[in-house]
Design a protein around this nucleic acid. Structure first.
Lengths: 347, 347
DNA sequence: ATGAAAGCGCTAACAT
DNA sequence: ATGTTAGCGCTTTCAT
């Protein structure tokens, strides 16, 4: 009794239902398993007529490939692991979208996970991705601690960072310093005299710091044409944090306020209006990110737009370059330039 | 020469780096592979001291489990496939969040994919999930065509639908008819005489239709206290669709407008304001969904809130009930009741 | 162009 | 409590 039929025999006895395998198809088509495998993966290696016979047999039996088996024997899974900060941070979604679209074409699966901006979680997720033998990791780093990313990359799994520049590997970043400069230049241009900044305490939020730095630099370069009345630091960059900032600023008002993120600006504007401070009549507000909601937030937001769709394309291309062409050599380092979007909050 | 060492020998020659396997750990710890496997998966089956020895050996060698192998031999992958409409539809994110949290605890991986509201894509994704041997599929169905879901469920992979009721399987739905009733009752209460509805053409959007039906039913039950001046149908439920609706409604204005989705309402309000129609002074607007942005949209939106966090809990529990307890018997059918949230767009 | 043999790294079934 | 044996379903040599 051959192994194969013994197997089937046992299954029948135990009423285990098993999926149709390449072995079944092979028998049905009168060829060997290898030929079936090839007909499916490397069609050119199989004669036209055998291939057709196999494909027919496969569909007749309702064959479904087993990805786990496929991936295990080829020693890597056709998956791309993506790590984002949070799901409802709409900002990244075009990036994942572009990646998914390309992945679908190339037969890859995208596996997505949230880090909630915690390195510890990020590390765990990366670990899990490795166990899955992902072909590449795409990550929006949540801190400057990137040892685990460097190690993973060195160990042979390409890691591509986005949004936040990363010196030691492929990175499609944004020039956050320049973002701050752009905001400041605009306020100078519009002749706002006294301004305030709403930034964040969070040690790990380097991008936010860079934005503040760029802003301050531009202002100091302008030599006293404008003065920074206050710099407020709130705990995070959420809507609620923005509300808190409003409380602090309601008293002696600057002419304009620069928020290091749009969400912060949404909260700020919301609370200011509640308190009875008009935007932009009493105080102008400028944000940074250009989230989709910025168009129709309470007061449509003037903001510095991050070039997300450009990032989406670059990230996607870089990922597949690395997968298909595993030369370890030059790391890709992009630093995209943001651009101003003028709406009513700071006309 | 044992297979094992031959293997290593070849790898060395060819400079292939391979991961540390249980076999390596077994040798290091002086036990068999099975014992290693057990020490890792079923610790109670292994003596305290051997277990410790194995764990030490594992960490000394830097062992990482291979999920593909694990899943292949156990004939199912510890993954949960999730299908949502679109990534930037913030609405579902608490559901995925709750699922991920629980999944992490139980050692499962969440694999997420977008259907873009197309059945064809939904079908493809389900197919791919099956090939992955997912333990369960969680889906926000994009149409009433659910054959593929029924089949998958029957074939032994539990399928749990959310947001949209689904008769033939587990479903954690929302009472969309009641949502429409709630909106209508509120308008009646506030004595709006002439109202309009912004709905959608899209054949497949049954939830939207139900909302309209509930709305109309309540109004006709009220016997002429209120009249529906117009029912506008736009192509989808996006911001842009809402803008189009505004164009049509700007002329002869109703007292209040019910939009079957918040995004529609955002677009509507945005365009109305641009045209010079004030909300709520000239016309009141009520939406449906209660997206996070509704709090700080141009005019904070009065809307009918879908009980998302309740859904999140129910979905998560149902999923793991099914996974851990694969009795085919009674399907879970929940229909959650929405509730009104009053903000300024319709005070 | 096709096939036979040998694994991929792990778990399950059955001993002991 | 531990080991032996036999796969999981596929791909990858290496022959033919």
């Amino acid at each position: 009794m051959k192994t194969f039929s013994l197997n089937r025999y046992l299954m029948t006895r135990k009423k285990i239902s098993a999926a149709v395998t390449q072995a079944d198809v092979a028998r049905e088509a009168g060829v060997s398993v290898v030929t079936v495998s090839r007909a499916l993966s490397e069609p050119t290696l199989v004669a036209e007529d055998t291939r057709i016979r196999i494909l027919e047999a496969a569909s007749r039996l309702g064959y479904t490939p087993n990805l786990l088996a496929r991936w295990l024997s080829s020693r890597r899974s056709k998956t791309i692991g993506v790590i984002i900060h949070e799901l409802d941070y709409a900002y990244f979604s075009p990036i994942v979208g572009a990646l998914e679209e390309r992945a679908k074409k190339e037969g890859y699966l995208v596996v997505m996970s949230e880090s909630l901006r915690q390195v510890s979680i990020e590390r765990e997720v990366v670990e899990r991705f490795k166990q899955l033998l992902v072909s590449a990791v795409v990550v929006h780093p949540s801190s400057s601690n990137t040892e685990h990313l460097v190690n993973t990359d060195r160990a042979g799994t390409p890691v591509i960072a986005f949004a936040r520049p990363w010196d030691e590997g492929d990175s499609i970043g944004v020039d956050n310093f320049e973002a701050g400069c752009i905001a400041a230049r605009f306020l100078l241009e519009r002749n706002h005299r006294e301004v305030a900044i709403v930034g964040t305490d969070s040690e790990e939020n380097v991008p936010a710091k860079m934005r503040v730095d760029g802003f301050l630099k531009t202002i100091s370069d302008a030599g006293g044409a404008i003065s920074v009345q206050r710099i407020i630091s709130v705990a995070g960059t959420s809507f609620e944090d923005g509300c808190m900032a409003a409380e602090e600023l309601a008293g002696k008002r600057p002419h304009a306020i620069f928020c290091v993120s749009d969400r912060l600006a949404f909260g700020l504007v919301n609370r200011l209006l509640e308190i009875g401070v008009r935007v932009p009549e009493d105080v102008a507000v400028i944000g940074c990110d250009n989230l989709p909601q910025s168009t129709y937030s309470q007061v449509p937001l003037t903001t510095v737009e991050l070039p997300v769709s450009e990032m989406a394309t670059l990230v996607t291309n870089t990922v597949f370059d690395r997968i298909q062409n595993p030369t370890r050599l030059p790391k890709r380092q992009e630093l995209l330039i943001p651009k101003l979007v003028i709406r009513s909050s700071c006309p």
